[in-house]
Design a protein around this nucleic acid. Structure first.
Lengths: 142, 142
DNA sequence: TTACGTGCAAATCTTTTGCAAAGCA
DNA sequence: TGCTTTGCAAAAGATTTGCACGTAA
């Protein structure tokens, strides 16, 4: 919990409160993990807070996450039916979801990004955002 | 409601019941519409049934839709938070969602499809399915 | 006939909201 | 102090389930 972590929070204009600091730092910490450890649901964050002795209510978790998403510090994804959050890093990426193991793999393909922009333009629109999820399974698996 | 409509239903092995026929045919009818008229939520289908005098319950709408999705006759999409259904046509396509008007535009790009397959393979997976939604807004619009 | 399907009511799950109390600036 | 946040409880929205009755094959 270094001081500069809160700098990002401060820039949002929101008051620096314990729940916000805690929730944001959980996402910062998890973002350093390999694999898909850094995709967390609201409830996972809530449970994690309680495991570490922070009694933040579930409504507050939702409220704070919504605020952090609006502020651009956090990204919300919906995989199939599940909603998960992760720290908004500078590098954009898409997700691949293994339908057998549930594992999430991140990837980035500049050509796909480019093509998306072109497609939007071709239809008279500008691309604001996108969500791409590949549902995959292991090659050897069955 | 031509007879051959039920042929697809019959192939699923499910019994041919009024709710199934009605729900399937609504999706068939709507699939002929231009624009995004053919993306329907479970509730829209439910309301449409009642408007046309068919008293099918909401749980049944959900049950039937789930069965039709499993059978491959219907596709389920989740745009942002909303769940919608549409007839599974032979030609796959992706969606573009205008964040100002809520309008849905369908498109297809073979190169993107190809690239997705390659990406999955590169990671040791085979591509089973994917969901791509572009969030866009009109070029001139602000 | 008889297993499958449906309606109803109620349960679940996730997310949101109203309001009084508590906390940051 | 004054306005923002939080916790609690309850509401809301979407989807699912249990069970007795109804119906296609």
């Amino acid at each position: 919990m270094p001081a500069q972590d809160n700098a990002a929070l401060r820039r949002t204009g929101l008051r620096i409160t314990l729940p916000r600091i805690k929730i944001y730092n959980i996402l910062v910490d998890k973002s350093k993990k390999k694999g898909d450890e850094h995709h967390l649901s609201a409830e996972q964050i809530y449970l994690y807070l309680h495991e570490t002795g922070e009694n933040v209510s579930l409504p507050t978790v939702y409220r704070v996450l919504t605020q952090l998403v609006s502020a651009g510090l956090v990204m919300r994804h919906r995989f199939d039916g599940r909603t998960v959050y992760e720290l908004a890093t500078k590098e954009h990426h898409d997700h691949m979801l293994c339908i057998e193991s549930g594992k999430v793999i991140e990837f980035r393909d500049d050509l796909i990004e480019e093509l998306q922009k072109n497609i939007a333009q071709k239809h008279g629109y500008q691309l604001i955002d996108h969500e791409l999820v590949l549902y995959v399974k292991p090659v050897k698996g069955k």
